[in-house]
């Protein structure tokens, strides 16, 4: 991509953490791509909202706890985090359960935002 041209990137996260590698892979791609100073937003839909559920303790399953890294996203100027309202409701979760500040949106609202993106990355 040519210098100075800012594109809108949206990462769509729909998988629960740990059960598959998608959550961690997405987070790593976001951090790597943040070096390119693009307009980045993250959407958390379906089981993806579980990625932000506070209180991971991964000692027992012996994998790295990557949840604290979500709190570093702000340092990387990634601060547009959208969480699907319907997904939270279906899982008995609320904004207070989220490990970082997020904006809660309906599926339809996220859908509209998705339409405005230059690039959508699916995880």
């Amino acid at each position: 991509m040519s210098e100075g041209q800012i594109k809108k990137f949206m990462y769509v996260n729909r998988k629960a953490p740990h059960g598959t590698i998608y959550a961690l892979e997405s987070l790593e791609v976001v951090l790597i791509a943040a070096a390119f100073d693009q307009d980045v937003s993250l959407a958390f839909m379906d089981d993806g909202v579980y990625q932000l559920k506070k209180g991971f303790n991964t000692k027992g399953i012996e994998v790295k706890n990557f949840q604290p890294t979500y709190r570093a996203l702000d340092d990387y100027d990634v601060n547009k985090l959208y969480v699907e309202k319907e997904a939270l409701e279906a899982r008995g979760l609320t904004a207070e359960d989220m490990v970082v500040p997020v904006e809660i949106m309906s599926r339809a609202e996220i859908g509209k935002l998705m339409e405005t993106q230059d690039i959508v990355l699916s995880f």
């Binding site: 951090l31 070096a35 790295k64 604290p68 340092d75």
Partner: peptide, 15 residues
């Protein structure tokens, strides 16, 4: 320790 990540240089500089 806090974020479980080694920051990129731009982030390190700012922090």
């Amino acid at each position: 320790n806090e974020f479980q990540i080694a920051p990129a240089v731009r982030v390190l500089t700012k922090a």
